[in-house]
Amino acid sequence: MSKGLLDIFMHILKTGGTTLNELFNKQYQLNEIFDHDSFQYKMMKMDQLKAGEKRNIKAVTGHYFYGIHQEFSRPFNYFSDVTRTGGQSHFILLFFEGLSRI
């Protein structure tokens, strides 16, 4: 992925992020990725990581807001899955349809 940068994948709901997560898991070793509040198959929050573990992380993926990079002290690269899919369109339609009934 990005040489020397922390890759941060901001997954947007219903946009097919599973495929990108699979690519991350093939690209990085288990101790190099923080994935949806889990590290090395253990559920934990970012603030529970030890300093050495944080230094080894090369990629972060999940439903995070912009600003997660502040947890790390190195250059970073954000990217996202912004292509709209049928699933997302369906989700948006159902969501707004539900709001009109309230």
Results as ranks from 00 to 15, higher is better:
1 M>I: 00
4 G>F: 08
5 L>E: 12
5 L>N: 08
5 L>A: 11
7 D>S: 13
8 I>G: 06
8 I>S: 12
9 F>M: 08
9 F>A: 05
10 M>T: 04
10 M>Q: 02
10 M>F: 03
10 M>V: 05
11 H>Y: 01
12 I>Y: 14
12 I>H: 13
14 K>C: 13
15 T>Y: 06
16 G>H: 07
16 G>S: 06
17 G>D: 09
17 G>N: 04
18 T>M: 02
18 T>G: 09
19 T>Y: 10
20 L>Q: 12
22 E>P: 01
23 L>W: 01
24 F>C: 11
25 N>I: 01
26 K>D: 06
26 K>F: 01
27 Q>A: 09
27 Q>R: 00
28 Y>F: 08
28 Y>A: 07
29 Q>N: 15
29 Q>P: 03
31 N>F: 01
32 E>P: 06
32 E>T: 02
32 E>K: 05
34 F>Y: 15
35 D>L: 13
36 H>T: 08
36 H>L: 04
36 H>F: 11
36 H>D: 01
38 S>T: 15
39 F>D: 03
40 Q>G: 13
41 Y>Q: 04
41 Y>P: 00
41 Y>H: 11
42 K>S: 11
44 M>T: 10
47 D>E: 09
47 D>V: 06
48 Q>N: 08
49 L>D: 05
50 K>C: 09
50 K>W: 02
50 K>T: 15
51 A>K: 09
51 A>V: 12
52 G>H: 07
56 N>W: 02
57 I>K: 05
61 T>E: 15
64 Y>N: 07
64 Y>I: 01
66 Y>N: 02
67 G>V: 10
69 H>C: 09
69 H>T: 05
70 Q>G: 00
71 E>T: 00
73 S>A: 08
74 R>M: 03
75 P>N: 11
75 P>G: 03
76 F>A: 12
76 F>E: 15
77 N>K: 12
77 N>M: 04
78 Y>M: 00
78 Y>C: 04
80 S>D: 05
80 S>G: 10
83 T>F: 12
83 T>R: 12
85 T>C: 04
86 G>I: 01
87 G>A: 15
87 G>Y: 08
88 Q>M: 14
89 S>H: 10
89 S>A: 05
92 I>Y: 10
94 L>K: 15
94 L>N: 14
96 F>H: 02
97 E>L: 11
98 G>W: 03
99 L>I: 11
99 L>K: 14
100 S>L: 14
101 R>K: 15
102 I>G: 09
102 I>N: 07
